[in-house]
Design a protein around this nucleic acid. Structure first.
Lengths: 221, 221
DNA sequence: ATTATCTATAGATCTATAGATAATGC
DNA sequence: ATTATCTATAGATCTATAGATAATGC
């Protein structure tokens, strides 16, 4: 071992920082069982450390949980933006279309994110009242901008007039519920959902089609 | 107390059957906290009986839980039928339209049914494998009939050709997710969701509109 | 005699901490 | 000296049951 230039003493680090392992194990345990169902003993076991280590690193189960849910809430926020932000140069309808697809793909990568977040917020609403006001403000600003764009598109006869928040709810419902319901639907709709990838590709196209038809100006009835 | 014709000794029944009270309290506790979060002590307290009574009536927490989830699963099945069954005399498109509305109203009366059922099935899949095959058969028969009707409507040029199961997923997604997400959305979308009744009425119309636009044959592009 | 109810407590789990010991970096 | 790890155990909580007592219906 010649030049000991530091930076990466990876070999020598026999006794290491187990924090990442614990966090990874905690994420799996909390995501699959929720706060109440999760056991710190199981997390420790899965992380390959003794149970006392959890408390050494995070003091309490709650504090460990906060580390996990915090990241998940951030992801949740990202997923909203994913659905609406895009190059303002492009036409409005086209941006919505790519937004739906990107939101779907994001959900596909975090399939049990919505279920987890909704459950935890519902079972301990008091934990999240603090952040509500700031979320409300961000969403409000965002929807106002988008509403104006939608109004303009409607003026040009490209789209229907509608409340942008309704549209966003529609998009999120179709995309998120696909993954929330997948474990239930899968064994029942057997052949349709057989190959997960194929089914998801179909459902992705279906959701885009559904929303675009909702949004586009109907031909003279 | 003259004629003791039995039938209804309601007055004399000082010490009564507390089973209904326990079941009602258990339903509230399990629905709001899930199996893991629920405490038999809390259920007993809410039902106004000592804790030992739960075990007298139901032996174990699990058996008490089964009584609750069993009813909920039945309701869940009902909700599916609600969306599709209807008077076969009526035109197909019209039946779908009323089906969506009825399904929405059913969800409104059982707003946390889907969330609860999905969570419990997900955390203990083995409990539900037994019923899967029978559910699969029922759904399969149902969708085949409906698919044929939809195909006929498409043939007449009334509707688009599509997989009826995709359509059903769309309907259930829009309706169920409205209620799954409501507690999260409500404080954020403030003025939109302000009066629950008004918002639900709007969303109900929105969901019907969205699905009908998806389904109806698009005018020549 | 059967059914319903209560008190008291066993037994299992689970979170958390105290205190000892080993490794690491100066 | 500080950081990381382990063993052992306290303390809280929760489900479940044993056993006594009261009420009810024959």
């Amino acid at each position: 071992m010649p030049s000991d230039t530091g930076e990466r003493p990876s070999v020598r680090r026999v006794t290491g920082n187990k924090e990442p392992e614990i966090l990874a194990a905690a994420e799996r345990e909390f995501m699959s069982k929720g706060f109440d169902g999760a056991r710190t003993t199981s997390i420790a076991e899965a992380a390959g450390v003794t149970h006392a280590m959890l408390h050494y690193y995070f003091r309490t189960k709650e504090q460990l949980f906060y580390r996990i849910i915090d990241r998940k809430l951030r992801l949740m926020g990202e997923s909203f933006l994913m659905a609406v932000e895009g190059n303002p140069q492009q036409p409005f309808l086209h941006r919505i279309e790519t937004g739906i697809g990107r939101h779907f793909d994001f959900m596909a990568e975090n399939p049990d994110l919505p279920r987890f977040v909704i459950n935890e917020i519902l079972s301990h609403p008091e934990r999240y009242t603090v952040m509500q006001e700031s979320v409300r403000r961000i969403v409000s600003a965002l929807t106002q901008t988008l509403q104006r764009e939608l109004d303009a598109a409607a003026e040009r006869g490209e789209t229907e007039r509608m409340d942008i928040r309704m549209l966003m709810l529609d998009i999120i419902s179709l995309n998120a519920f696909t993954f929330i319901s997948y474990p239930i639907i899968e064994p029942i709709f057997g052949d349709l959902t057989g190959e997960r990838e194929r089914f998801l590709k179909m459902k992705r196209a279906e959701n885009i089609e559904t929303i675009m038809r909702r949004l586009r100006r109907a031909q003279t009835t």
